[in-house]
């Protein structure tokens, strides 16, 4: 079970990132728990400067813009 968090204040790119991760996880048949972190103090704890950011099992793997499918697949 992968624990995935999407960091972002709720802009369009953040929502699209969440949707894309769900899609890819479903395609790959990977079980994930996906949550959104929208509170700025929380987001800042990860040291991310551009949103959306993605955290997999506590580690930042992406920041800024929507990640592409290949990149998402590589996290699973």
């Amino acid at each position: 079970m992968k624990d995935i968090k999407v960091l972002g204040t709720g802009c369009a790119n953040c929502r699209n990132t969440v949707r894309l991760i769900e899609e890819v996880a479903a395609e790959q048949g990977v079980a994930i728990t996906l949550s959104k972190v929208e509170e700025l103090p929380e987001i800042m704890k990860y040291g991310v400067m551009s949103t959306p950011g993605v955290v997999v099992d506590g580690k930042v793997v992406h920041a800024g813009g929507i990640p592409d499918r290949a990149k998402i697949t590589s996290w699973f």
């Binding site: 204040t9 802009c11 953040c14 700025l40 400067m49 551009s50 949103t51 800024g64």
Partner: peptide, 14 residues
């Protein structure tokens, strides 16, 4: 690269 939705994280990061 800059998007106004990232203004605050960037600001604090700096």
């Amino acid at each position: 690269p800059f998007c106004s939705c990232s203004a605050v994280p960037l600001f604090i990061g700096f």
